[in-house]
Simulated assay, not measured.
Amino acid sequence: MLSTMSTPARPLEPVADTAHRLLEAAAEAFADRGFHATTTRDIASRAGLSPAGVYVHFASKEELLYQLSLEGHVAARDMLRSAADGASSPTEALRAIMARFATWHAEHFRVARIVQYEFANLTPEHRDAVLGLRKQIDAVVRDVVTSGVASGEFTVDDVPDTTLALMSMAVDVARWYDPEIKRTPEAIGAAYADLGVRLVTAR
C-alpha cells in the first residue's frame, strides 16, 4: 500500500479520447463480425478496456452504432454542402459532390459499410434521427439537380429518382472497395464525377 501511494498517480485519459477509442474499436468489430455477432466484450478488448468500461461512455452497443451512424452522416452532409456551396454552377457542384462522396466512401469504406448496412439495427428513435440526416443529404443533391434543370445544364425527367441514382452510385463504392485494388479513392472519385454529370446530361 505504501509503495503504491508513493508512486506518482498516472494521469487519467481524457473522457473524449476513451470514447473515441471505443468508437474506433466498435467500427472495427462491426466491420469484421457484424453488429449481431459483436459483443461489448469484443469492443472493450479492442479498445484495451474492461467490458464495464464500455458502459461508462455508452449505454449499449446499439448506442455505439448510433454514434458511428450519426457522425458518418453529419460528415457526409457537411461535406456535400461545402462542395455545393463552393461551386459556380450546377455542373461544377454535381461534379464536386460526386467526387467527394465517392472518394469518402472509398477512404472510409469500413465505417461506410456499417452506416449503410447496419442501419436496421438502430432503435426506432435513432433510425428516425439518422433518416432526418439522410433527407438533408438528399436535399443537397436534389437542389443541385433542380438548379441544373432550371438553368438548362441538365436534362432530367424525374429529379427525385435521378437524385437517388446519383447517391446510390457513390454509396455503393463502400460495398466493393478494397484497399488492395489498384485504383485510388481519388481516381474513383474523379470517375464518379464524370459518371454523375453524364447521367444528368444524357439525351
Rank of each mutant, 00 (worst) to 15 (best):
G48E: 03
V56T: 13
A76V: 15
F58N: 02
V54T: 06
F58P: 01
A83V: 05
M79N: 05
M79L: 10
T91M: 12
F58T: 00
R81D: 08
G86P: 05
R81V: 10
L68P: 03
G72P: 02
E71L: 15
F58Q: 00
K61E: 09
P51K: 03
A76M: 15
A84N: 05
Y66H: 05
A47K: 10
V56E: 14
S60G: 06
K61H: 10
P51R: 02
L80S: 01
S50V: 14
H57W: 01
S60K: 04
E62P: 01
L49W: 09
V56D: 13
D78I: 08
L80R: 01
E71V: 13
G53L: 08
G86I: 05
A75C: 15
G48M: 07
S60E: 04
F58W: 02
V56Q: 14
V54K: 02
S89K: 10
Y66M: 04
S50C: 12
P90S: 03
S50T: 14
Q67C: 12
L70G: 09
R81Y: 08
P90V: 00
G86R: 03
E62A: 08
G48H: 06
A84Y: 04
L80T: 01
L68D: 01
T91D: 09
Q67R: 13
E63C: 11
A87Y: 05
E92T: 12
A84F: 04
L80A: 00
V56N: 11
K61F: 07
E62I: 05
P51E: 04
E92A: 15
E71N: 15
Q67P: 08
L64I: 11
E62L: 06
A47E: 12
S88H: 11
A59E: 09
L68R: 00
E62S: 08
A59I: 09
A47F: 10
S89N: 12
R77G: 07
S82G: 15
P51Q: 03
P51A: 02
E92I: 12
A75V: 15
L64Y: 09
A75K: 14
A87W: 06
S82D: 15
Q67V: 11
D85E: 15
M79E: 08
A52Y: 11
S89P: 10
A52S: 14
R77E: 09
S60P: 05
L64H: 07
M79Q: 08
S69W: 04
A76I: 13
A52C: 09
Y66K: 00
A76N: 15
A83H: 02
H57F: 06
P90M: 04
Q67M: 13
G86L: 04
G86E: 06
R46K: 02
R77D: 05
S60R: 06
V56S: 14
Y55G: 01
F58Y: 05
H73G: 04
L49Q: 10
S50W: 11
G53F: 06
